[in-house]
Amino acid sequence: MSNRSNFWVQLPAIGLPALLAASLAIFGLLLPGRFWSVGAFESMAFQMPELGLLTLAMFLPFVSAGFNLAIIVTANITGIFMAWLWVNMVPSDAGTGLQIFWVALGLLGAMLIACLIGVLIGSLVAYVGVHPILTTLGFMTLIKGVGIFITRGAPVSGMPPVVQFLGTGSFLGVPMPMVVFILTALAMLVLMNRTSFGKYVYMSGSNINATYFSGIGTHRVIIGIYVISSLICVLAGLVMNARFNSARMGYGDSYLLLTVLAIIMGGADPLGGFGKVGGLVLALFVLQIISTGLNLFGVSQHVSLAMWGAVLIFVLAAKFFNRRYYLPWAQRRAAGPDSCSV
């Protein structure tokens, strides 16, 4: 019997959905009336997308056995660019059409900046072989320096109404930020599962040299990975601009750990090569639920941060025990007693 269809081997996959159900139940019970309310769910649906988009931005590099420590500063700096453009160029009485024009222009400019960043990072990793951690750490410092230099650390505030709608409005009952996130997640799903590029990313994550030897242009794949990652950061920056009505270096700093946590909880292998968008999205919901729940409990930001760190370690410990002790047991059961298959 193949491992894939065996009950015991697949059992751990129930972990995440179970956690989702459990957290919904527990917080609902502990905070009656406050948790299971339209307001709470709505606020979760508004809050989650910025983390979700950043997580999607981290997902591609992670699956390729790399890292992108610069996602947050990229989101910040492209957000600052867009904000600066809008604050300075959009007249306060502009009609919707004109606003949309400027928003589109701003997005275009921001994406060009993101492309540049992505190409530079990708080139260093692909052509020179600098480790992604070092590369993106360096770029993180550089971009943060540029951003703080430009803004002197101050926020750029005052988005045009169209953008504000993006942060506070809804479409068919679904909050706008969530719409953006869902569309992006769907696009990522298609990219990873149904395009050759997605396949190349998975293969590169497991063994980039073998992928190269199979005739794949891995340099282009790596650059593509970091460009797409940076482009998604632009969307994250846009959503943050919309929600906070301002842009600043430093927004979202605490999200870095959470993106890694969501990706790993979603089933990705820390060594690269594997990971599913579906799992990632599910993990994001769980994290948002727990985060909102804790918030409603009045737990401080700092304790939350420490807790997330502990959760990540716990999840990885659980994976270890699964791998080292549970899985071999389950596989032996799947293979049947006294199996001597060679």
């Binding site: 293969m203 497991s206 073998a210 030897f213 005739g215 090569g273």
Partner: peptide, 23 residues
């Protein structure tokens, strides 16, 4: 180390070179 990508599936390994034709 260069011919195969060990952790990935048999099918993925086999069609890696001709992905463009499977569209």
């Amino acid at each position: 180390s260069l011919g195969l990508i060990l952790k990935q599936s048999v099918a993925d390994n086999m069609v890696l070179t001709i992905m463009e034709r499977l569209k």
